[in-house]
Every structure is written in structure tokens, then in C-alpha cells.
Design a binder for these strands. Structure first.
Lengths: 225, 225
DNA sequence: TAATTTTGTAAAATAAATGTAAAAAACCCC
DNA sequence: GGGGTTTTTTACATTTATTTTACAAAATTA
């Protein structure tokens, strides 16, 4: 499922967009300002960003510049949504690195058409930084969705694959179970059970001799050694 | 140098665009109607197409559909330029496979910003497939549109053939159902049913003892073993 | 160290995705 | 427009994946 990050301080608009995107089968994440957007980007591998320009605090264009100069995020497509509709605004948005510019007000149909247009092209860039991730004898080829241990391919289930990819893309981070549930499962874990632990266990087993590169930090979560 | 194909019957506009694009360092090609456009596409590997919708003869949208359902050209980005500026025109243009839509009149600066935005993504790769593809006992002769299993010809339907060719040309890739729908069927594959699976099943059956070289990766898609 | 909490893990229960045949619909070629 | 073919949809069987459970083991706390 595709993750879409909505950065928009007007919660009415954000909710409207959220409602429609979810209906269209997307997973949405909402930030009310740029800093919150950056935090979510750190937690969730987003496929597209909808960016309002008029934000409190860090402005939309500043955010866009940060994104575009950051290795990990520079490939994520950005659609600007803004009440500024002058030609010069649009041109400067595009030239700063946005992929499209949608003047407010806009119809949901138009928004969906633009999202689909961009994602259609997206087969070749996955919204994630590197296509091949390596860690010790583990190699993850994201374009081809394959994982190798010491050069030998192993078969992972989808959740195991997502976990491994998240760890490999953030080798220094310890992820709490909540954060893992948010990034990979996509819901708030109200009464959490042992789901994450079970998947970690089976992933470790499939990684054979590298199973112990995934460490658990008591009361904190999981991450790479 | 990037090649840009301009399909526009109004020669004044075409000349204006040509002048500005050349000044910006692009190589331009001009067609006054869709058929001429097709001829140029056959001769020049174009990186982007600017398409006027109101053309004499074959209409712009028809041309777009042809492009998008042709293996060789389907990846070339298309920007529609048109005097039709109603929301529904734009949406239907995007959903037919255009990458952007520029209402007339437009400024050269805007056109250049849009062209640069699209080319920045480097979307243009005109991968020309080999003429004969082989994988284990399967042989696909693309020039003659024939498929052999252990030297014996088998009859495939068009969709089966396209699937097989896509797999054989990308033996390491696992294709999601969405991507298969995009590549082989067309773009607005909204409500997908089990179409892809059904075709995979019949293709497997026709491949006889090699049916299981097409593997399914749960929640991910299909590809070669 | 004992009590408590947290994590590991196998296996059962549940849920979801895929395989497949066949009916229905669409397409195509006289 | 009719007859054959291809494509899509449907329904159900089968397989695979995910979640939950229960208990063991390890870590943390007091």
C-alpha cells in the first residue's frame, strides 16, 4: 500500500483529503507543520508528499528545499497544494523541486488524477533512498524485492521483508514496537499483542547466521546491532 | 541532448515553442499532425512529447492512447497543451496517460519549468527488447511473435504473450499486479479484480512443464523463478 | 536473590492471498 | 449480426501469511 504524507495546518482540509485518499486505497499520514512532517518521514517510508505552502513555523518552500537536499528523501515526489495561484508561485515551486502544483481550491478528482499520474511513473523510483541495502552478509534488493544471505536468496513474507528493509535503511535506529506498527502495519496499536515479536522471531530465523544482527533492547524495541 | 517532439498544427505556436526550447538547449522536432508525430517517433528517440489536443485528422487524445498502449513509446512523458481548460478536460487528459497538462495560453517559463520537472525524474528510457528471449526451455521470438516450449510452438493469446515477454525481458524483477496492469493493460486500472491472476494461470498451463517458472510472491506480485 | 516484567518461540487459530474452473462479457472477423 | 475467440468476472478450493496464545527463558527491578 502506498503511503502519502499530508503536510497541512488546516485540519478540515487535511481531513477531507485523508478521507478521500483512504477511500482510494492509500495510507495517509498527517502533519500539521513541517517539523512534524520531517518526523513522520523518519518513521514511514512515504511514496508521495502533499505539501501546503502556508505553514506556521518552517515554511513550505523551506521544507521542500530540505527534502530535496537530503539524500534519503530527495527522491520522494512532492505535490504542492497552495492558495498562491500566481504563475510565478507555480514556477518557483516547480523549480524548487516540486513535481506538481495544485492551486486551491481543487477537486478531489483532480488531486487523485495528479497523484495517480505521478505514481504511475513511480515504478522506477520507489520513494526510498537506496535500491540495494547491505548489512554484513545481508543484501536487500528493493527494486527486485529480493533478499540474499551470503549471496543465497532467502524467501521472506511481506511483513518480514518490510521489517528488514526498515532496519537496513535505518541501521542506527532502535524502533519501538509502536513505531514499527505505525510504519509497517499502519494503525495505532491500542491493545498490542505480540505480533511484532513473532515476526521478528521468524525473520531472525530466516536470516540464519545473521539472525542476531537484529537486537532487542529491553523495554525499547528492535534495531540493528 | 534531449529530444522534444512538438505536435501542434498551429505553426506560429510551434515556432515560438521551438525557438524557446532550442534557446534552452533542447533539440526539437515538429509534427503538424498525429500521423507525422508517429513517423518522427519511429525515427528519433524522443525524451518528451508536447501534444496539442485539437489536431486535424487523428485527434490528440487518440494519439495519446496509441502511444500509451505501444510498448516502445509508452514510457515517453507527454505534456498536453490545449485550449480546453475545463477541469474535466484536464482530469481526462491525465487519466489517459499524460504526465502534465498545460492550458493555453501559457508562458515559456511555465513550459520550461514543467519540462524540467519531468525530465528531472529521468523518466525516459527507451529500452528496446531483444528479438529472441530464452529462459530454460522457453523461447520467445518477438519478431515473429511466436513462442516455443522445448522447441515446440505454443499458441498464446495476446495478453499471455505480453506477460511472458515482460517476464522474460526482466527475469529478475517481481512485478506487482498494479505494475502489470499499467504495463500491459493501460493506466486507470482502478478496481482491479482477478484479471491478472487468471491470465497468469492460463499462461502457466500453456507453458506445460515450465509453468512453475512463473512464481508468485505473496502480496507482491509475479515474476520468474 | 526473589519477584516482576519483558522477550523468545512454537504452535494453534484466524485471516488473507492465490489457484482454478467455468460462466459472463467483450471483442473480432468475416 | 453470428460464431468463434479472448478477456474479465465470479465463486469456491487451496495455500500461505498473520495474529494470537501459552509457556519458557531472559532481563530488570527491588
Amino acid at each position: 500500500m502506498r503511503n502519502i504524507l499530508i503536510i497541512e495546518d488546516d485540519t478540515d482540509i487535511a481531513e477531507l483529503i485523508t478521507y478521500n485518499l483512504q477511500k482510494a486505497g492509500y495510507k495517509t499520514h498527517h502533519a500539521v507543520n513541517a517539523n512534524e512532517g520531517l518526523i513522520i518521514l523518519g518513521e514511514v517510508a512515504c511514496d508521495i508528499i502533499l505539501l501546503d505552502l502556508m505553514l506556521p513555523g518552517l515554511k513550505g518552500m523551506e521544507f521542500l528545499k530540505i527534502i530535496r537536499s537530503n539524500d534519503e528523501y530527495s527522491n520522494i515526489p512532492v505535490i504542492i497544494i497552495s492558495a498562491k495561484t500566481h504563475e510565478q508561485d507555480i514556477i518557483s515551486g516547480l523549480n524548487t523541486g516540486a513535481d506538481d502544483y495544485l492551486p486551491k481550491p481543487f477537486s478531489m478528482e483532480m488531486l487523485l488524477a495528479k497523484i495517480n499520474t505521478i505514481l504511475r511513473r513511480g515504478a522506477s523510483w520507489t520513494g526510498r533512498a537506496a535500491n540495494i541495502l547491505e548489512y554484513q552478509g545481508i543484501k536487500l534488493d528493493d527494486a527486485n524485492h529480493k533478499v540474499y544471505v551470503d549471496g543465497r536468496e532467502i524467501k521472506l513474507t511481506h511483513k518480514e521483508y518490510e521489517l528488514l528493509r526498515l532496519f537496513l535503511s535505518n541501521p542506527d535506529t532502535i524502533f519501538s514496537r509502536d513505531r514499527l506498527l505505525n510504519s509497517i502495519w499502519g494503525y495505532d496499536s491500542q491493545s498490542y499483542t505480540r505480533t511484532v515479536d513473532a515476526h521478528i522471531a521468524s525473520l531472525r530465523k530466516k536470516l540464519l547466521s545473521y539472525g542476531d544482527v537484529i537486537i532487542s533492547v529491553s523495554k525499547t524495541g528492535y534495531g540493528l546491532k
